[in-house]
């Protein structure tokens, strides 16, 4: 389990329909850990999304922290959700984390893991950052 995983699963279990989930996602997006605007470059842009999604990270006290943004509301909410999920965890915990989180919160049926919505691309990027950190620090 990642740091905030249980809390997020609990939050999502309270919603009765997709409208409520989307409203929550959009609210999450409003409080996103913003990426430094200067870093909104192609280097931090995630390829394969229908909207623009930027993602950056910081490595502090053996933990990874993520920052992001998007030009669309729902994808911004998704980035915020992913940041909530993965931030503050060790690279090892991130890499070994099983991706059934989205099934548990029942978002997977809504957000098909296709190339176009880019959710899986975001997760891949996070895992790539974690992998690089792990290898850097032996």
């Amino acid at each position: 389990m990642l740091l905030n995983e249980e809390k997020l699963i609990l939050n999502f279990s309270l919603f009765n329909n997709w409208e409520e989930k989307y409203e929550y996602l959009i609210e999450l997006g409003e409080d996103i850990c913003f990426i430094d605007p200067e870093k909104k470059t192609s280097k931090h842009l995630i390829q394969g999304c229908q909207s623009k999604v930027w993602l950056d990270f910081e490595f502090k006290n053996d933990k990874l922290y993520f920052y992001g943004d998007s030009d669309a509301l729902i994808s911004k909410g998704l980035v915020a959700l992913i940041i909530e999920l993965y931030s503050g965890n060790s690279p090892k915990d991130i890499l070994t984390h099983q991706d059934n989180f989205f099934e548990k919160i029942n978002l997977k049926e809504h957000l098909s893991m296709t190339r176009s919505n880019g959710l899986s691309m975001m997760i891949k990027k996070i895992k790539k950052y974690a992998y690089e950190q792990l290898n850097k620090n032996g």
Partner: peptide, 20 residues
């Protein structure tokens, strides 16, 4: 409104369109 947001919602309402 971003086309991605609009298309996501339309899809929740069971409307098949394309976007991007």
């Amino acid at each position: 409104i971003h086309h991605y947001d609009l298309a996501s919602l339309l899809s929740e309402y069971n409307i098949c369109t394309r976007s991007g």
